[in-house]
Amino acid sequence: MNDHDGFREFVLVRQQALMRTAYLLTGDAHLAEDLLQSVLVKVLGQWGKLSKGGDPVAYTRKALVNQYISWRRRPRVELPSASVPEHGVSSDDRTLDRIVLREALARLAPKQRAVIVLRFWEDLTEAQAADVLGCSLGNVKSQTHHALARLRTIAPELAHLLSEHEIEKVAR
Rank of each mutant, 00 (worst) to 15 (best):
D97K: 15
P156S: 08
I167S: 01
A58S: 11
P110N: 03
E103C: 11
W71N: 07
A147E: 02
D28T: 00
L79K: 00
D93F: 12
D28P: 01
V170G: 02
T125K: 13
R152Y: 04
T144V: 10
V57F: 09
P156W: 06
A22C: 02
G138M: 10
D34M: 02
D5R: 12
R107E: 15
L151Q: 05
H145A: 08
W47Q: 00
F10N: 01
R172F: 15
K62G: 15
H160M: 03
S70M: 11
A129G: 03
P56I: 06
A106R: 10
E157W: 03
V84L: 14
E164F: 11
E9Q: 13
T26H: 04
S136H: 02
D3E: 10
A82D: 09
K141Y: 09
A63W: 13
P85C: 04
R61I: 09
G53I: 05
L161H: 08
A63E: 14
A104Q: 03
I116Q: 01
P75T: 05
S38F: 08
K49W: 14
L133Q: 07
A82G: 11
G27S: 06
M19E: 12
A104C: 10
A63R: 15
L79N: 02
L133Y: 10
T153S: 11
F120Q: 02
H87T: 04
L161P: 00
L50W: 06
A32I: 05
R73W: 10
W121F: 15
R72A: 15
G48A: 13
I167C: 01
H4G: 02
H4C: 07
V57A: 00
L64Y: 05
N66L: 13
A22H: 01
E9W: 12
D131H: 07
H30I: 00
R150S: 11
E9P: 06
R107A: 15
G54E: 01
F10M: 07
T60C: 02
K52S: 11
R94I: 14
